[in-house]
Design a protein around this nucleic acid. Structure first.
Lengths: 206, 206
DNA sequence: GAGTATTAGCTAATGGCATTAGCAAAAGCT
DNA sequence: AGCTTTTGCTAATGCCATTAGCTAATACTC
């Protein structure tokens, strides 16, 4: 019956995935820090200690979710920018896609961007995509500068920090105050499309 | 010995205050959601159940801290604005004082603005000052409009939302990425003094 | 000052949690 | 078929929040 090189490994990976999905559900209901291995085990139809065959600790579950989230988010913002040349348009598309992803994946986003879990710090490999995310936005802003859409200062340290803070601010306000609103209706996230314009008025091309 | 109307009530209030202080310390070490009644009791030199004479539950401790935080923060931003007439200058001073307070009281700030504790929602009375905070900033922005420092749109829904998001963005980025930096040195919070200028370039007076 | 009510502490107990140890059955491999 | 690896289980440990019930001290009343 060895029709597939490693059947067991595949089933194992499936189970791990199922555990992560259930964990997300629990976190959505109980809060990010409210993840309970026992609850996940119950929903999986298994005794709590059996989970430890798949993840060595609760922290490891967080870490796997962290990495998965980083990759999904990076994918979302990259894909959104792809159709455009690097510049303000691409930046706007990335902003919007990022905000959308965050509102659609709130618990994952909290884990990624706000670290609400005492004792959890992402492993270096789980954190790696975060650097790519930063590089992605930096690249778009440099592109906007080269196209004459922004003042060169926008690509400096302060400009990049401000650009990152603009989106972080809208999204964090939206999550804190109106977490159930859709991205396009929320009092805060509906302003996301205006961010490229905000950046341009702060850093008008020379 | 009844030299003071209610001696016991005073001692009780002192103990409650001491508990809140110890709780803040534990939260600073273990994370906001890592507050443990048992740890607080140990530090107070008392058995865990005795804490329940002072707070009916762990959630009640969070609630008391929430209210205390709201009041302190409101005080800080109000006091900073006082010397100035309502306008961009006062707004800048409030922004800076608020950012400073948050960086100096990170755990309290997380409790106030990011709700990282599953199952905790502030009671209406603990939440009350939050409305005053909003009104404070709205008043400053209206003042800036009246003084001709900002376009009237700045005092609309979108303008107020953007103004709140600007400071939220810088601070949340600072906390997430460089929590140990001082407010004036941090890559993000050092941009706080520029926020009135940012707002003015987005909403230039007609 | 004696008596009474209130308060603040204690210990013991309950039920939940993450995690570890050790065992038994199943699944795959040779 | 026999061996190894994997996956599940139960039992146990030590933590937690919280409740119940008791005792000593503290303050108030007469």
């Amino acid at each position: 019956m060895a029709d597939i090189p490693d059947r067991r490994a595949r089933r194992r990976a499936e189970t791990q995935d199922e555990i992560l999905g259930l964990a997300l559900g629990v976190m959505a209901e109980e809060g990010v820090a409210g993840l309970s291995m026992s609850t996940v085990a119950r929903r999986l139809g298994v005794q709590p200690p059996s989970l430890y065959r798949y993840f060595p600790s609760r922290t490891a579950v967080y870490d796997a979710l962290f990495e998965r989230g980083q990759r999904q988010y990076l994918d979302a913002v990259r894909r959104a920018a792809e159709p455009h040349p690097p510049g303000l348009r691409a930046l706007g598309a990335s902003y919007e896609a990022g905000a959308q992803w965050i509102m659609d994946n709130q618990v994952l986003a909290q884990l990624l961007f706000w670290r609400p879990v005492p004792g959890f710090a992402p492993s270096p490999q789980a954190y790696a995509p975060a650097l790519d995310i930063h590089a992605h936005f930096a690249g778009l802003i440099r592109g906007a500068v080269e196209r004459g859409e922004l003042h060169p200062d926008a690509a400096g340290d302060d400009g990049l920090a401000l650009a990152a803070s603009l989106i972080a601010g809208l999204v964090s306000q939206q999550l804190a105050n109106e977490p159930d609103a859709g991205c396009t209706e929320g009092r805060y996230t509906r302003l996301v499309p205006r961010l490229p314009g905000v950046l341009a008025s702060v850093y008008p091309p020379s």
